[in-house]
Design a binder for these strands. Sequence first.
DNA 1: TAAGCGTGGGG
DNA 2: TCCCCAAGCTT
Length: 356
Amino acid sequence: MPAAANPATADALSRPNPAALLAWYDRHRRRLPWRAPPGERQDPYRVFLSEIMLQQTTVVTVAPYYAAFLRRWPDVHALAGAPLEEVLSAWAGLGYYARARNLHACAKAVAERHGGQFPADEAALLALPGIGPYTAAAIAAIAFERSAAPVDGNWERVVARLFAVADPLPKARQKLQALALTLLPPARHGDFAQAMMDLGATICTPRKPACALCPWQNPCAARAEGAPERYPVKAAKAARPTRQGVAFLAVRADGAVLVRSRSPKGLLGGMTEVPSTPWESGGSAHPSAHAPFKVSWTALNATVTHVFSHFALELQLWRAEVSADALAPDGHRWVLPSGFDDEAFPSVMRKVLAYA
DNA sequence: TAAGCGTGGGG
DNA sequence: TCCCCAAGCTT
């Protein structure tokens, strides 16, 4: 290394060379279930499915869901023909359930409006439900070899460090997007998009980045400053409030549990739940008013806690044994434990049902 | 524009 | 325990 290899100012840095990153990718690319072998064409449906699942969700979490979906619905026509309830049930536990509703709506749109072929243009992809700027660019680049910058959290971190962008997220998004476009290579667009993600996931990590192993250590302004982990700068986030409620476990003599479906949109939209009071800060003054049966409820000595993205929930559990011939109230139904796997129970409800 | 929208793992 | 984080989109 030359003695003057420690540039003190940004203008002493060379421009990041896409070929250097691609060469690194050829040696270190991660083998992931949704990736075709090197040089092979990616199936747009698989790219689509994996990209939707990977939104705000880790590789390890997604992998089994991806395999199950692909086995059950191997192409866009199969998914488009599936009942939404089955898609939600298969998605249960993965979170952000609007993704599942939009995944299904998108498959139907592609089947009906595009003859089962995903469009290759970013703009056309962007018009589909559940596909935003990131996903449109990712599908265009990875499935269709279009020049595009799918700027996800990895890209944002890498770019913020390369150029030492001090503006805090999320306001810095536009600037980072513009800088990202300056990095794009003349070819291998899909590989480059995934190389950026791999770099962010394995080298340019949020904490303790492995700069010594980075193909772009030389042109990186944040490294030149000496504290790359300082980037990207993030705005302070709001505190997470707590809400309380009472969940009612009505258990029939044969073990069936009373459930209902949540409204189709909003929190846990379309998912299955046991009846409960509204989830409110301070809880409900008169839980009994929300009970599905006028019987004697036993307050269990148990609190289910669950953390959502924007609030924490504390659920008290009330349990009651109900006679074998009890009718389910309007909008409710009985589900036997043997049928639990076919229900779209979100994680919080699985915690609740552990007490049934 | 900012808030709503899940979950599980790691430091 | 708590906070941060993960291949974002919608309204």
